[in-house]
Amino acid sequence: MKQNFTVRHGALDGVETFLAVAKHRSFRRAAAALGVTPSAVSQAVRALEARLGAALLARTTRSVGLTEAGQRFLERAAPAFDELVAAGEAARNLGRRPTGLLRLSVPRAVVPLILEPVIASFCQAYPEIELEIAASDEMVDLAAGGFDAGIRLGQFIAPDMVAVRLTPPFRLVVVGSPDYLGRRRPPERLDDLRGHACLRMRRSNGSIAPWSFVDDDKAVEAIVSGPLIAHDYPTLLGAAIRGMGLAQVPGPLTETPIADGRLQALLTRYAVTTPGVFLYHPGKRQVLPKLRAFIEHVRYQGVEAPRPSA
Rank of each mutant, 00 (worst) to 15 (best):
G65N: 04
A54Y: 12
L190K: 08
P227L: 15
V7A: 13
D13H: 12
V249A: 09
P187T: 03
R307W: 01
P178S: 04
A87Y: 06
S26K: 11
S39C: 02
P275S: 05
A77E: 02
A197Y: 02
I151P: 02
V162L: 03
L12T: 11
F147H: 12
A222C: 14
H9D: 14
A69N: 13
D260W: 10
G154W: 09
A230T: 06
R72L: 12
A247I: 11
L166C: 09
R194T: 05
A77Q: 03
P227D: 15
L263F: 01
L102W: 08
D260N: 15
P117I: 02
L193H: 03
S39A: 13
A86H: 01
F278R: 06
V118E: 02
I223S: 08
A86Y: 00
D260H: 12
D217P: 02
H24F: 15
R25D: 05
G14N: 05
H297L: 07
F122V: 08
G226K: 05
L84I: 10
K2Y: 07
I223A: 10
H9A: 14
M244R: 07
L263D: 00
R285H: 12
A30G: 14
G251E: 07
D217G: 11
A143C: 01
A90Q: 13
M139H: 02
D137V: 01
L131K: 11
A90Y: 05
G53H: 14
M1C: 11
L48K: 09
F27W: 08
A30Y: 11
L102C: 08
L19F: 10
D148T: 01
L291P: 00
L56E: 11
L267W: 04
G195L: 11
P107L: 00
S63R: 10
P308N: 08
A271D: 13
A120N: 08
A149G: 05
A11D: 15
A222Q: 14
I208S: 00
V214R: 13
V174T: 15
A32W: 03
F5D: 07
V249K: 03
M201E: 00
W211F: 15
S212T: 08
R28Y: 13
R51T: 13
G176T: 01
P257F: 04
A58W: 06
I223Y: 05
D216H: 15
Q248D: 04
I229C: 06
I114T: 00
A135I: 03
V249Q: 07
K290L: 05
Y280Q: 02
A239Q: 09
E255F: 02
N205K: 02
R108P: 00
A78S: 08
M161R: 10
I229S: 05
P227S: 15
Q155G: 05
A259G: 05
L104G: 04
E296Y: 09
L253S: 07
A31W: 06
E83L: 12
A87F: 08
V7C: 05
R202N: 00
A149T: 04
Y126F: 15
L166R: 05
A87T: 09
I229Y: 03
R152Y: 06
D216K: 15
G70T: 10
P210S: 04
E221C: 02
D160L: 09
R28V: 15
P168T: 14
E304P: 00
R184K: 14
D148N: 09
A22K: 11
G154S: 10
R171M: 05
